[in-house]
Design a protein around this nucleic acid. Structure first.
Length: 306
DNA sequence: TGACAGGGGGTGT
DNA sequence: ACACCCCCTGTC
């Protein structure tokens, strides 16, 4: 750990096309990742791997900064994390927006929205926490896991308060040594048993997880689904948000509802909706899903405001 | 201000 | 279909 708690200077984020504030919020704090938090000044403070970054939207584009001693590491990792290594424009062009008016609406509503490329292991951990939980609660669980069981990364000043030590999420190797009871104390509930079981399996099978990330989509999904607590939905989220597999099409209750109302698929079962999604949206179905999801979230927020 | 249901982005049996 | 857990949110 370091004593320094100063931030680097704000620098423009040149690797991404200009994003509106609302698209930036949707990208990093819209359900793909759970370790970003909006600060009182409207900026976002986030952690992934052993990186800490703050992002803010200004009139001259998105700016970023990091704790001074991490600045060069974050400068290297941030573009990859934010999906700047992939070119989304041609991917979006493969989507059926020409014949699908609702999809076209969603694409227009969130210009520049993309898929994050998060660390594979952390993505698995976060989505093992996600079962029947909303974003706020998932954030709470992962914050506790990091604070209590993850290595410290750096000390930072946040807002007016004093310095705070920020921690990374525990690795799967570290999790294997955490008793299930202590996981429960991180508000994991019945998910604690799954995470404990997954950690034991992964520590008993060195290399298995890294190999999984490299496998073709179908094989990787099958292997992930063999872990306790990982079903199709979680596996698809991990492959989409943590391995850049745009063909992964997670079907959750939101997508079920969306496709029921907007696409007339009332009464369809998750497997049928998944089949529809792959057939209708094609090889970047997961990207389409993110736009549909963002649109419904915005619709819900606006409905509450009225 | 404080208690009290109700429901929650899923998986496994 | 229902249990698994128990925290959040809205409401009285």
């Amino acid at each position: 750990m370091h004593l320094a708690a100063h931030w680097s200077d704000w620098k423009p984020l040149t690797s991404l096309p200009a994003l509106s504030e609302r698209v930036l919020g949707e990208l990093i704090d819209g359900g793909q990742a759970f370790r970003w938090n909006r600060q009182p000044d409207g900026s976002f403070l986030g952690v992934w791997s052993d990186c800490i970054a703050q992002l803010k939207h200004t009139s001259s584009g998105i700016m970023w900064r990091a704790p001074g001693e991490l600045a060069s590491r974050v400068a290297r990792a941030l573009p990859t994390y934010l999906g700047a290594d992939s070119t989304f424009t041609p991917l979006i062009d493969t989507l059926p927006w020409r014949s699908d008016a609702h999809l076209a609406n969603c694409l227009t509503a969130f210009p520049g929205l993309r898929i994050l490329r998060q660390p594979f292991g952390e993505t698995l951990l976060c989505f093992l926490c996600s079962a029947t939980k909303q974003i706020v609660q998932i954030k709470q669980m992962t914050a506790l896991l990091a604070q209590r069981h993850g290595a410290p990364i750096a000390q930072v000043h946040i807002g007016e308060g004093g310095p705070v030590v920020m921690h990374r999420l525990p690795t799967w190797r570290e999790l294997a040594d955490v008793p299930e009871k202590e996981l429960r104390a991180c508000l994991l509930g019945f998910r604690a048993r799954f995470i404990h079981g997954a950690a034991k399996f992964l520590s008993d099978h060195p290399g298995w997880f890294d190999e999984t990330e490299m496998l073709p989509y179908a094989a990787a999904k099958e292997r992930l689904c063999s872990l306790p607590g990982v079903g199709e939905k979680v596996a698809d989220c991990v492959l989409l948000f943590g391995a850049g597999r745009m063909e992964a099409f997670p079907v959750d209750v939101w997508i079920l509802k969306t496709l029921a109302t907007r696409y007339g698929l009332q009464g369809w079962k998750p497997a049928q909706v998944a089949h529809f999604g792959r057939a209708h949206f094609g090889p970047a179905a997961g990207l389409a899903q993110q736009f549909l999801f963002a649109y419904e979230r915005a619709a819900k927020r606006e409905a509450i405001k009225v």
